[in-house]
């Protein structure tokens, strides 16, 4: 009985035990709030600078030496073409590679080597992909400085990330479902097509779209393969010359006249809006596709 402490003492003890946790919680909240505030401050700054130029004219205008009438349409169209083509190339290749590695490949030295390489490639600086794309797609394959060559280069840049996220998505499909499918007499292809793919698709798409959102801001590989700066027409085929948003922004920030810096800020706002749109699409797709699957 003498061991029993008073309730008040008990509470004080608990408080003392909780102190480190509270402190950790505070640090955690700070770690979220600080970067968000910084981001908000940067974006707010860009928005304030950009405000006078943001409008329909800016979105539908062509580049000009006069900052007040210069617009971003060719860059916007170029980036849209790039993203669409990059997704078309990266999804089948990345998903295919992920399917092979997860579902077909037996553990061996070779697969271990491939996996190691994919992990390493994900960390290679993007300008190296630009140099690779310049040599292979632009020169050897003979695509020229086209939007197709740009998309192939960006697809190459995204492939490691797409493969890694697709494999993660494939691993979330429970093994028991595959076994159940086999037990019902389905072969491997039927199981993949009817069970595994539909279930992992939301995860795969999220991964792809998030990597696209990263790629839309890439400048170095595009400059290397020869994306242009002044283009007064829109791409009309995959062989068209093109420019892209980050290149146009970069050009405007480096001009001496302050009026161009306003354009650069407006370009940044458009680019961020596009990124948010892509991320939003990823969330929407995931929510929509996930609802269809029951087990």
């Amino acid at each position: 009985m003498s061991l029993r402490t008073s309730p008040i003492h008990d509470l004080a003890m608990r408080r003392a035990e909780l102190a480190p946790e509270r402190a950790f919680q505070a640090v955690g909240i700070l770690a979220i709030v600080l970067p968000l505030l910084l981001l908000l401050w940067l974006f707010g700054g860009a928005l304030v600078d950009a405000w006078p130029r943001l409008g329909w004219d800016f979105l539908t205008g062509f580049p000009s030496r006069k900052a007040e009438i210069a617009g971003i349409l060719p860059a916007l169209a170029g980036s849209a073409w790039l993203m669409a083509l990059t997704a078309l190339i990266a999804i089948p290749l990345g998903l295919g590679a992920a399917l092979y590695l997860e579902e077909y490949a037996r553990p061996s030295r070779l697969t271990a080597l491939i996996e190691l390489n994919i992990g390493t490639l994900a960390g290679v600086p993007s300008i190296l992909y630009g140099l690779l794309g310049l040599e292979i797609f632009v020169r050897v394959v003979g695509m020229g400085r086209s939007v197709l060559a740009g998309a192939c280069t960006l697809a190459l840049l995204l492939l490691p990330m797409v493969i890694i996220t697709s494999r993660e998505a494939l691993r979330t499909v429970p093994q028991s479902l595959r076994e159940a499918s086999f037990a019902l007499g389905a072969d491997r292809w039927q199981t993949l097509r009817r069970i595994v793919l539909p279930m992992c698709l939301p995860g795969v798409l999220t991964g792809v779209i998030l990597s696209l959102a990263r790629a839309i801001g890439e400048t170095a590989p595009l400059i290397t393969i020869g994306a242009l700066t002044y283009v007064a027409f829109l791409p009309d085929s995959v062989h068209s010359a093109f420019t892209a948003l980050p290149i146009q922004i970069f050009n405007w920030t480096s001009r001496p006249q302050a009026a161009f810096h306003v354009n650069a800020a407006a370009g940044i706002v458009v680019l961020i809006a596009l990124m948010l749109l892509l991320n939003g699409a990823a969330i929407w797709l995931r929510a929509r596709l996930q609802r269809r699957v029951y087990w």
């Binding site: 400085r145 020869g226 242009l228 700066t229 002044y230 007064a232 010359a241």
Partner: peptide, 22 residues
């Protein structure tokens, strides 16, 4: 070059002038 291409493009809309900064 951008300025010249812009003005030239007004007189010859069917010619596509492209300028890069390598």
């Amino acid at each position: 070059t951008e300025a010249v291409a812009e003005e030239y493009g007004k007189t010859k809309p069917d010619v596509q002038v492209t300028v890069g900064i390598s």
